[in-house]
Write a protein that binds this DNA or RNA. Structure first.
Length: 596
RNA sequence: GCCGAAGUAGCUCAGUGGUAGAGCAACGGUUUUGUAAACCGUCGGUCGUCAGUUCAAUCCUGACCUUCGGCUCCA
């Protein structure tokens, strides 16, 4: 987000945002007291709080926060009024230049107004459009959360500034509630649950960002992927399999090489005499491979659309600093598909993709997502391939398709893929970070790169249009989201272990295994807990593993061919005939119900 | 990749310039249990890796690996 936009948006601050923005200024004053040579960048209100970016003579550490916070409290208690003024542009430039405030000077230079806003509280004077609260004592409880690095203007080629994030609320109750919410969110963190529920792990001896899945995690992956596969087939997709490696020249043809070569895992250069173009890399994306499948045969207009789907693992060398549990990995399994179609089929194929995605979201009970229409940044045309004309057609077509479908969306300028605009489904994780999952991309460019053709009704070759789409995106990232969405308590159809059989005493083990056999025969994933623990301990452990059903078996159950059913919701269903339990679970699992 | 923090037993963590501890887990024994942790005992760590400083390094310094919080990026 540009500084200009932030400053403009600040005009529309809500009361709490205004207070948070004022808190940022107070923090800046505290910093000025500690570091008289500090240079100030920007300090807006954000969701739940505020931040301010500083250029300081030394790095901040978390140990600095208490002192800054203490000084802020003093400033707040000193009841300084926020004084607003408007200075002529030249005066402001002169002032900030004299003060060595280069960042402020740069901001003013980018403003076209004749006058600029100035706010002062206590000894701190800042360039700012405001608005602010009237007096520092109107600022509620504050807490500084963390220090972080941030590039000036978000540009990695510009200086790295130090950012302090803080939170501010009108009342202590709201603050406490917010901190409690953060704690609760941390309990859902998929990295923590992934270890506790024995789903996956990472090893320093493999590769950063490459998860290793335990049996329970693999079961979960497999169920997720099977579900998408079945659904896709119902929607008319055909599955293909392409390799895990490809030659550099393939990705040069698709132009991916020129944008992403730094992110491709090199494998080897085969023959010493071979050219660089013949070197191998691990497959970073499927599109060129699917395109080869299409291109290697003649196609009639009657065959279209052709929908090739593939769910396999791609490798991308993501920068180390970007890796985050399963949410950002270097080995990602995309439920990818490429549709080759006639131009007149775009609308229908788009609808088909959207419907497929929404159906899957519905099954998972996902509601906390939003949709972004990702467009090209017209200021940075060089970063995209394809002519203006093609882009205009693609963007207009996609926008028209979204609107005719009646979908609510927000536009994301500069969020397009390098070959075309897309529709992205954005989901939030437990800690409020947003991740792109599903995506639908319209592409007129790759068919040109590969000179794709089909034979039309007129007997002449025509160029097809492509649709790239992923339903859940990457299995890994979607799993991260599901773990957090369900807090590890997966619906029955997804639970790696659906039932834990708990024999009360050793003499009940035979019956427990008999129950296990019958459950397995019925396709229910179950285990017997034969450890020498007491029943209470076994129940506790199954509960902590979020296993949907705990089946306690003792003398009564053995004689009655029954199981005593306890749900992970603490509900006790008492003794049920085994056949009745099997019927119940089978029904819930096959309907993918979220009930127990 | 950049800024900052961190890495001690399988997990959660304590600790010190003189080669380390707790709880849980695991294992062994006792107990044979009716809906969220029985009791006793045992094992377990070249303190992330490699160099350097030092009589002596888990502790200090450097590089690297990995993780965490952000920034940038995400076909």
């Amino acid at each position: 987000m540009s500084v200009e936009i932030e400053l403009q948006e600040s005009m529309n601050y809500t009361p709490i945002q205004r207070m948070r923005h004022s808190a940022a200024h107070v923090m800046a004053e505290a910093i000025q007291e500690i570091f008289p040579d500090a240079r100030f960048a920007i300090g807006p209100a954000i969701e739940d709080g505020f931040y301010y970016d500083f250029d300081l003579p030394r790095p901040l550490t978390p140990d600095d926060l208490p002192e800054i916070e203490q000084r802020m409290r003093c400033i707040i208690a000193a009841r300084h009024p926020f004084q607003h003024d408007r200075w002529p542009r030249e005066q402001a430039l002169e002032y900030f230049h004299t003060k060595g405030q280069d960042y402020k000077v740069e901001i003013i230079e980018n403003l076209s107004d004749a006058e600029v806003g100035i706010y002062q509280q206590g000894n701190f004077l800042d360039l700012c459009r405001g608005p602010h609260v009237g007096n520092t004592d109107e600022i509620g409880p504050i807490k500084l959360m963390r220090v972080a690095g941030a590039y000036w203007r978000g540009d990695e080629h510009r200086p790295m500034l130090q950012r302090i994030y803080g939170t501010a609320w009108f009342t202590q109750e709201e603050m406490d509630q917010y901190l409690w919410r953060l704690e609760e969110a941390q309990k859902r963190d998929h990295r923590k649950l992934g270890r506790e529920l024995k789903l996956f792990t990472f090893s320093d001896d493999v590769c950063a960002g490459v998860p290793q899945f335990y049996p329970r995690g693999e079961t979960l992956r497999h169920l997720m992927e099977s579900y998408v596969r079945e659904t896709q087939e119902r929607y008319g997709y055909q599955h293909v399999w392409t390799s895990n490696i490809g030659k550099v020249r393939l990705y040069k043809t698709s132009k991916h090489w020129y944008t992403y070569r730094e992110n491709m895992f090199p494998v080897m250069k085969g023959d010493q005499e071979a050219s660089d173009d013949d070197a191998y890399v691990l497959k970073p994306m499927n599109c060129p491979h699917h395109i080869l499948l299409f291109k290697s045969q003649m196609h009639s207009y009657r065959e279209l659309p052709i929908r090739y789907a593939e769910s396999d693992t791609l490798y991308r060398y993501e920068k180390t600093g970007t890796l985050t549990g399963l949410a950002r990995v270097r080995s990602l399994t995309q439920d990818d598909a490429h549709v080759f179609m006639r131009p007149d089929q775009i609308q229908e194929e788009f609808n088909r993709s959207v419907n497929l995605t929404l159906e899957v979201f519905e099954t998972y009970g996902l509601q906390d997502y939003w949709i972004r229409l990702s467009l090209r940044d017209p200021q940075k045309k060089a970063e995209y391939v394809g002519s203006d004309e093609v882009w205009e057609i693609a963007e207009a077509t996609l926008r028209e398709a979204v609107e005719s479908k009646g979908i609510q969306y927000e536009e994301g300028i500069g969020e397009a893929a390098f070959y075309g605009p897309k529709l992205d489904f954005m989901v939030r994780d437990a800690l409020g970070r947003e991740w792109q999952c599903s995506t639908i991309q319209l592409d007129f460019v790759q068919p040109m790169n590969f000179e794709l053709e089909y034979i039309g009704e007129d007997g002449q070759p025509h160029r097809p249009v492509m649709l790239h789409r992923a339903v859940t995106g990457a299995t890994e990232r979607f799993m991260a989201m599901l773990i957090e969405h369900f807090a590890g308590a997966f619906p029955v159809w997804l639970a790696p272990v659906q039932a834990m059989i708990i024999p009360i005493a050793d003499r009940h083990q035979d019956y427990a295994y008999k129950v296990l056999e019958q459950l397995k025969t019925a396709g229910i994933r179950a285990e017997v807990d034969i450890r020498g623990e007491r029943m209470n301990a076994k129940i506790r452990d199954a509960q902590m593993q979020k296993i949907p059903y705990m089946l306690v078996v003792g003398d009564k159950e053995a004689t009655a061919e029954a199981v005593s059913v306890r749900l992970r919701t603490n509900v006790d269903l008492k003794s049920l005939p085994l056949t009745q339990f099997i019927e119940r679970v089978s029904g819930i699992a096959s309907s993918k119900s979220l009930e127990l």
